[in-house]
Design a protein around this nucleic acid. Structure first.
Lengths: 134, 134
DNA sequence: TCAATTGCGTAATGCTATAACGTGTGTCAT
DNA sequence: ATGACACACGTTATAGCATTACGCAATTGA
């Protein structure tokens, strides 16, 4: 999918996430954007929904929070990846690292195939501590 | 860990989950157990917390719901597994299949090690459709 | 032009989870 | 025995996350 033009609300939400050090909850985003006219949770959730469709934002299920996709740091989009995304979530500093591995994807695909299961969305989240947080 | 003796509340919650066809939310469990004296969410959450510690119950992060561990169906506990647990969650019938794979575990361990990350808890949930639900 | 689609704003509501009390019970070292 | 502690429990209130329902405005395209 080619990156679509974002609406004002979508841009605001994406910027908030992109500039954050850690995942943000929808309500935290709402608070950050009150000065920009945001008044209700739905404004945030609607923007998040679209941004997730576009692959620009990920939802972290184990945190009920959201992060900007790492591909945003890759301005040439040379690394933009559409397979399974994995997250390492540090309980210490809150930082989230996104990573990918085709080997994992293949192995997982094989496992679900054996069960005759049709995958639609895969969630892989590792909670723990990063190098700096012991 | 040897399976500890469960309290009354813990047994009730575990039974509710074990007899369910699909994952249950904490509030659904509460409703099912009102006739047994349950009145407040905390009674459910406290039991769930312990049951998760004991490895008898899993939380599904992408559903905000809970399932009895598959090891309960294995009365000799010969298959009781303490590594990474993966779940295939059918959007059609709601059924959840628990599965394990040491190859995945090893590969994942390798990947996080490369990032100098210390894993504490791993969540792997596959959303999709099972064989019966197309 | 009319219909369909999409995004937006607002209010209300529902679902999920925890905080902060206090009570009772059992263990166990003193 | 008694005091200290740990633990399970019960209740109320509150916090945090997400959606339903309504209506309006702008855009698109048959």
């Amino acid at each position: 999918m080619v990156t679509p033009i974002l609406t004002k609300n979508q841009s605001l939400v994406l910027d908030a996430l992109a500039h954050a050090e850690a995942p943000l909850s929808a309500y935290t985003i709402l608070d950050k954007l009150r000065d920009h006219g945001f008044r209700a949770p739905l404004q945030v959730y609607r923007a998040l929904e679209k941004l997730q469709e576009f692959g620009l934002v990920h939802r972290l299920e184990s945190l009920n929070a959201f992060v900007a996709c790492a591909c945003r740091e890759d301005h040439d989009h040379t690394h933009h990846h559409h397979g399974v995304t994995m997250f390492a979530i540090c309980e210490g500093c809150g930082q989230v690292t996104e990573f990918h591995d085709t080997g994992m994807e293949e192995r997982l695909a094989l496992l679900v195939k054996k069960q005759h299961f049709k995958t639609e969305k895969t969630t892989i989240e590792i909670r723990g501590h990063c190098q700096n947080c012991v």
